[in-house]
Write a protein that binds this DNA or RNA. Structure first.
Lengths: 133, 133
DNA sequence: CAGGATCCGATCGGATACTG
DNA sequence: CAGTATCCGATCGGATCCTG
C-alpha cells in the first residue's frame, strides 16, 4: 500500500520545505517529538511528569517541542489556575493520529531492531561514548 | 490498531536506548534517514544521484547515513568495479519495510500538514530566517 | 565518480538562575 | 509547579581538499 506519488520534490531538509510531506518529515524526524508523542499517547501528562519520563530532558527542550506540537494543533495545553499551578498536555483528535505513525515505528523496531545487531548512533565525528556496555 | 504495550521504558533519547523501540526512534527520528529512505524507495540510486535529490547534502552526511543504514541491513551497497567507479544503493527486503513508515508519515503529512498553518521549524534560540515568505 | 579527512560555523540541548 | 532567559559546551552538517 505505497502512496506512490511522491517523487517530485522530496528534497530540502532545511527550510519549511513548503510541501506537506517535507513538513511531516521535519516534524517527525525529531527524536524528542516522537518520544513526547509516544508518552502522550498513554494519556494526559503534566509538564514535569513528561520531563521525568523523557529522562530528565531539559525544560527548555521540552517546552520548545510542546509549543511546536501545540501550534500545529496536535497537542492541547490545559492550565489549571491553582496553587501550585498545574498544567496538563494531551493529544488532540488530530494528534491522536500520530499514534499510527508511532505504532508503525514501534512495529518496525520490534521486528528489525531487536537483535544485538550493530548499533550506530547516527552521530559521526569521533566523539561518542560506549555503545555496548 | 494501537500496539498498546508500550509503556515500560520509553525514555532516553541519547545512548543506544537498548530497547528496539528506542533504536527505531533514534533511527527514524532523523530527517536525513527519512529522506534517503524515501528516495531509495523509488529504486536504486547512485551516490551523487542521492546527493542531488537531497538538495546537495554534503557527501559527509550522506555517506554517514548510508553507512548506518547499511550496517543495520536496510540498505545494500553495490560497487561496480569500473572506471569511473559506480556505486548503487538500494533497499534490502528489510529496508523495503521502511516504506510502511514513510507511507504513514506521508499520509499524516498530507492529511494534517497541508494547510498554511503555522510552520514552526523545531529549532529554538532566536536564530532562524523567515518562515513565511 | 565515490567517499574519507579536516576545518569550522551554525545549531542543539543541558545546566543554572529567575519569575508567576 | 511550570515555564522563560541565558550561558555555553557538545554535536551536526556544510565546504573544501584529497585519494582510489
Amino acid at each position: 500500500m505505497r502512496t506512490s506519488d511522491h517523487q517530485s520534490s522530496v528534497t530540502m531538509p532545511e527550510a519549511c520545505t513548503a510541501t506537506p510531506i517535507g513538513r511531516a518529515i521535519r516534524l517527525l524526524g525529531d527524536v524528542w517529538i516522537l518520544l513526547i508523542v509516544m508518552n502522550l499517547l498513554q494519556g494526559p501528562r503534566r509538564f514535569n511528569a513528561l520531563r521525568t519520563s523523557l529522562g530528565n530532558i531539559s525544560s527548555k527542550t521540552l517546552s520548545q517541542r510542546l509549543k511546536v506540537l501545540e501550534e500545529l494543533g496536535f497537542v492541547q495545553r490545559n492550565a489549571f489556575l491553582e496553587i501550585p499551578p498545574r498544567v496538563e498536555y494531551h493529544l488532540t483528535t488530530q494528534g491522536q493520529e500520530l499514534g499510527d505513525v508511532i505504532a508503525v515505528i514501534e512495529q518496525f523496531g520490534k521486528k528489525h531492531l531487536s537483535g544485538s545487531e550493530t548499533c550506530p548512533s547516527i552521530s559521526d565525528d569521533t566523539t561518542q561514548s560506549a555503545c555496548s556496555e
